[in-house]
């Protein structure tokens, strides 16, 4: 097999993934039960959070960086989206891109100093940011068309941001979200499969080897933070447009920890793992709630799951699925050879 065929192998994986995702997008809204109402709205949010999960997953899985502030950055993206909407009235798609840009800057600037020290410092610093953002957001609230920089009308007469014209009702907005998420994930996949992805893999392996290969490790770490923060910002924008308003209650520090935990359990090394992580993070707790299981027990399960995953199963559920599929493939392969 030549290197070209490796690439085509990878591309095949991507095409399968995208095809499955598109199939899901087409089918899900027509499913009974989840296809409409609360079920669909929950699923929409879960799909949005898979972007935040993918960011945490890329940072941890590809660079070995632990960032525990992703939900905080979703809040930054959401806040910026609402603020820009009320300030400029630009189309949602433009606001979304600007929000991604702002989140990229915020996410990079706050983590840069810690990056100079060590991975452990970055983990601590990002947790600090998650904690700080929780309270700041609770204090300022999210813009609802009010006056001033904060843009919040506290009297309760505030307005909501309309959904994008391409996704007005729940079903079309679900599809809108799914398309944006697929596009972003494909872009992320492309980055991982090209020059930056290779440089990140080298950095994860070790600074010395990476520097000896000519890689500017600082620049590529900054790039990774910027890219993943931007992706998380997109999640914030989509979330803001989903309901038109945002509630500070959704952006507690523990949510950031929970998101990181789900990513770890689901598997940080592949984008599929990230998508599973997003579903875990938002959908499973809601599902358990409807079954009458106390949502707080999810914390217990996922918390203990994290301990288990980090100590014994570094590749998570996605890794185990991959092992399973490659085991099946090698079995069928052998059978073909034998016959």
């Amino acid at each position: 097999m030549s290197p070209q065929s490796v690439a085509s192998n990878r591309t095949r994986g991507l095409i399968t993934g995208v095809a499955l995702a598109v199939l899901a997008v087409v089918l899900v809204p027509s499913l009974p039960g989840i296809g409409a109402g609360l079920g669909l709205r929950t699923l929409t949010v879960a799909v949005i959070y898979s972007l935040a999960a993918a960011s945490a997953g890329v940072l941890y899985g590809r660079l070995g960086l632990v960032s525990i502030m992703q939900v905080g950055l979703v809040a930054v993206g959401g806040w910026t989206t609402l603020r820009l909407h009320y300030a400029t009235g630009l189309p949602f798609e433009v606001v979304l891109l600007l929000a991604a840009l702002v989140t990229a800057v915020v996410g990079t600037v706050v983590s840069l100093p810690a990056l100079r020290l060590s991975g452990l410092s970055l983990a601590i610093t990002t947790l600090m940011i998650a904690g700080a953002l929780e309270v700041i957001v609770r204090y300022t609230g999210f813009p609802n068309g009010g006056p001033g920089f904060v843009g919040r009308d506290a009297t309760g007469s505030g307005s909501t941001m309309p959904r994008p014209s391409l996704g007005q009702d729940d079903q079309t907005y679900f599809r809108y979200v799914a398309v944006v998420v697929i596009v972003v994930l494909v872009l992320l996949w492309w980055l991982l499969a090209s020059r930056p992805g290779r440089a990140w893999a080298a950095i994860r392996q070790g600074d010395a080897g990476a520097m000896a290969s000519g890689i500017n490790t600082t620049a590529y770490r900054v790039l990774a933070l910027a890219v993943t923060s931007a992706v998380t910002g997109v999640a914030g924008a989509l979330l803001a447009a989903n309901s038109g308003v945002l509630d500070p209650v959704s952006f507690k520090a523990q949510q950031s920890v929970l998101l990181f935990a789900t990513v770890l359990i689901a598997g940080a090394f592949s984008l599929a793992g990230a998508v599973i992580g997003g579903l875990f993070f938002y959908w499973v707790p809601q599902l358990l709630n409807t079954w009458g299981v106390d949502g707080n027990l999810v914390f217990v399960i996922l918390g203990l799951g994290t301990v288990q995953a980090i100590t014994t199963a570094p590749h998570g559920i996605a890794g185990q699925l991959e092992n399973l599929s490659s085991a099946l493939r090698s079995r069928t392969g052998r059978r073909v050879e034998e016959s």
Binding site: G64, V66, I68, G119, L120, A123, Q254, V257, L258, F260, A261, L264, D294, N296, L297, V298, F299, V300, I301, L302, G303, L304, G305, T306, V307, A309, I310, T311, T312
Partner: peptide, 28 residues
């Protein structure tokens, strides 16, 4: 015994999971 085998960052992440579990228990 498991923590002894992994690097510092992962050790810390394991305790992060433990804190999540304890928090969930308290909230429950």
């Amino acid at each position: 015994p498991y923590l002894g085998r992994i690097d510092e960052l992962r050790k810390a992440v394991a305790t992060l999971g433990f804190s999540l579990a304890l928090l969930g228990l308290m909230l429950y």
